[in-house]
Simulated assay, not measured.
Amino acid sequence: MDSRNQAECGSAKHKGRFSENIYINKSLKNKFDSSDMDADSPPAPQKKSMSRESFHRFSKLLLTSFIILLLLLKILFAIALITLFKNHPQLLDEKAIIKELNYTELECTKQYSLLKDKVWSCCPKDWKSFSSQCYFPTIDTASYSESEEKCSSMGAHLMVIHSQEEQDFITKILDHKAAYYIGLLDPGHRQWRWVDQTPYNESVTFWHPGEPNNDKKNEQCVVVNHRASGWGWNDVLCSSKVNSVCQMKKIYL
């Protein structure tokens, strides 16, 4: 083989080794690159896990803050209500009275009262005001017990009269043609008693002449009615169907 051929052969062998080296190097590079990628890939799930953990922490913190805020608002609301009703107890009293008596409206007048923080005196609507009392003449007739029960259902009782002024006041608003039960009755032996347990004062009574009829001891209830001599009291049977006058104390606000 001549020198030229030897040179070409040597050159070919050299190229072959070089190509092989390149292939080996590329394989190693790919292997190294693959191993590098495998080594770097685990952090990805770790980042995801850390993100979820942060989200859960934030959610718990937000929920806790919301619960605390609700509790604070509830406490503040309770304190506000206590303060309001402590400073204005009449609000509770008025609501309790209105609920108990089934009244939705009150008619009030401003006054200068000795009672602390009480500047309004009120009666239920359509009731008549006099002194410290409210009065309501009924328009339907009933027996004494039925009349007293009706007054009681309104938080009142049958009228009690202790003065000429009170007698004059009520008779001015009554119907001359009707008779009205008042809260005076005889439980026996002509021992007259007022329904509110106040003393019966014989010196302040307004009986019609000849009344009460002592010969009719079964007439144990009393009405106020009008005769030729004017208004006065008359004892009657408690089963008599007549009108009545209810009375209750004023509501002070």
Rank of each mutant, 00 (worst) to 15 (best):
Ser3Asn: 09
Ser3Lys: 13
Ala7Met: 12
Ala12Ile: 15
Arg17Gly: 11
Ser19His: 06
Tyr23Cys: 10
Ser27Pro: 00
Asn30Cys: 05
Ser34Cys: 08
Ala39Tyr: 13
Asp40Cys: 06
Ser49Arg: 14
Ser51His: 11
Ser51Gln: 11
Arg52Ser: 14
Ser54Cys: 07
Phe66Val: 06
Ile68His: 00
Leu71Arg: 01
Leu72Arg: 01
Lys74Val: 13
Phe77Pro: 00
Ile79Pro: 00
Leu91Lys: 06
Ile98Asp: 07
Asn102His: 09
Tyr103Trp: 12
Thr104Lys: 10
Thr104Arg: 08
Leu106Trp: 01
Glu107Leu: 02
Lys110Gly: 08
Tyr112Ala: 03
Lys125Ala: 05
Asp126Thr: 06
Lys128Pro: 00
Ser129Lys: 15
Ser131Tyr: 06
Ser131Cys: 02
Ser132Met: 09
Phe136Asp: 08
Phe136Tyr: 13
Thr138Gln: 05
Asp140Met: 06
Ala142Ile: 02
Ser143Asp: 03
Glu146Asp: 11
Ser147Cys: 05
Thr171Arg: 03
Lys172Tyr: 02
Asp175Lys: 04
Ala178Cys: 12
Gly183Ala: 02
His189Cys: 09
Trp194Lys: 00
Val195Ala: 06
Glu202Pro: 09
Asp215Ala: 06
Asn218Gln: 10
Asn225Phe: 01
Ala228Ser: 11
Gly232Ala: 05
Asn243Asp: 13
Asn243Lys: 14
Gln247Pro: 07
